[in-house]
Design a protein around this nucleic acid. Structure first.
Lengths: 219, 219
DNA sequence: CCCTGTTTGTCAAACTAATTTCAAGCTTGT
DNA sequence: ACAAGCTTGAAATTAGTTTGACAAACAGGG
């Protein structure tokens, strides 16, 4: 088993808050609580939870505002919103504000736990490839470096994947042509794409030239 | 088909009231009417409707008061409130008082019917799907973005649902054909529908094309 | 059952992005 | 300084995408 999931519970009703705190702890979550929007925002940043349970009706910035601000700041943490009534507008507003799921009060605690598990469960997808501060996501054809997201084209992904699969090892042009290109292309395309990748990936340079042999990620 | 949904219409304007009575009856609802707050409360208890259409501006206890009292008595019947102006305070007040949805006069009758259906069907309905500020309601085949309501056709909903079920992941044309179309259609239909969706969903664009692969939602 | 408006699917032309080539200039090792 | 190898801008080429126009299928109302 992995380490416990960290959950932030935001609700201004002390009994409910305590109940959630105890139940979730019993379910194996590591719980932090907040009673109003302001401390929720602070806690979300300081504590970096894996998931947030957020009541819409809380003092200060309400749940919707909190969700919006978190999204504005770029925090991707999944939010499960608690809404008071079974009102369509409420739910729509919550989801528009950036919530990932909602639950109508009163709710069964088992239901809450199930939803939380669903939100924290990692989707199955191709594993990410990485090297130093570079991460390549094959599913989305996108790389990330130092937090910056970089869109890549098909060939760029192919070449970068090849390099990442044998980090530091030298990849020859022949090899690259065979694996990324369906042969029958000038060897120069590889160089061309190395250049493009270097440009997109930025500094400090990650792809090293091995004269007479090929290319490799910097050791 | 199940038995007809019972709706209580509360409005003090006789022509409008009669029009609603006739239209809703034609739509298969079983209709009862009331002209003021007092009889509305009485009818709500005696008649036990599945849903209530309630004008805010009525004599005696006004719409807000009626909603509040019904909630105070513990009646959970969904209320669709008709507000005269498109004033935010009005709507907020309505929702706070216990309304489940609101419609601004003048309204299209079809819209009213659609909302009523949504409210009565809501009991055990599919959860809403969302991504960024887009929310899709599968039950009503309608999407909402930034408060604007967007009508979608069957195929449009199907495709959008597919994209929303794996937010950000790339959906290939093949996959879309298999899941949304019963195969046996040109791959181009997918493109065609992506275009239509993009137009309907407006700016900023949500559907990104991943050249050579397919389409995906983008943050 | 027919008419009407909507939804759906097809095609082809216009368009756009990605890929590849070429050639000139630049590095590096000896 | 020379040669072999590497880099890169610009242009040509190719592959893939978007969209208007239209016809077929369909749904609903009279």
């Amino acid at each position: 088993m992995a380490e416990p999931e960290r959950v932030l519970v935001v609700d201004d009703d002390p009994p409910l808050r305590r109940m959630l705190e105890r139940t979730l702890a019993a379910e194996g979550f590591e719980v932090t609580v907040a009673a109003d929007g302001g401390s929720a925002l602070a806690a979300a940043e300081r504590y970096a939870p894996d998931v947030i349970v957020l009541d819409v009706a809380i003092p200060a910035p309400d749940g919707l505002a909190v969700a919006r601000r978190m999204r504005a700041k770029g925090l991707p943490t999944p939010i499960l919103m608690l809404t008071a009534r079974d009102a369509v507008p409420d739910r729509v507003a919550g989801l528009e504000a950036g919530a990932d799921d909602y639950l109508v009060k009163p709710f069964a605690v088992a239901e809450l736990v199930a939803r939380l598990r669903a939100l924290t469960r990692r989707r199955d997808s191709q594993p990410l490839l990485s090297y130093a501060d570079l991460v390549l996501d094959l599913d989305v054809r996108r790389a990330t470096r130092a937090g910056r997201s970089i869109e890549l084209t098909g060939r760029e992904v192919g070449l970068l994947e090849l390099l990442l699969r044998e980090p530091g090892r030298v990849v020859t042009r022949e090899r690259a042509l065979a694996e990324v290109w369906d042969d029958a292309a000038q060897e120069n395309v590889v160089d061309r794409y190395v250049t493009r990748l270097r440009r997109k990936l930025g500094d400090p340079p990650l792809i090293r030239t091995v004269r007479g042999a090929g290319f490799a990620l910097r050791a």
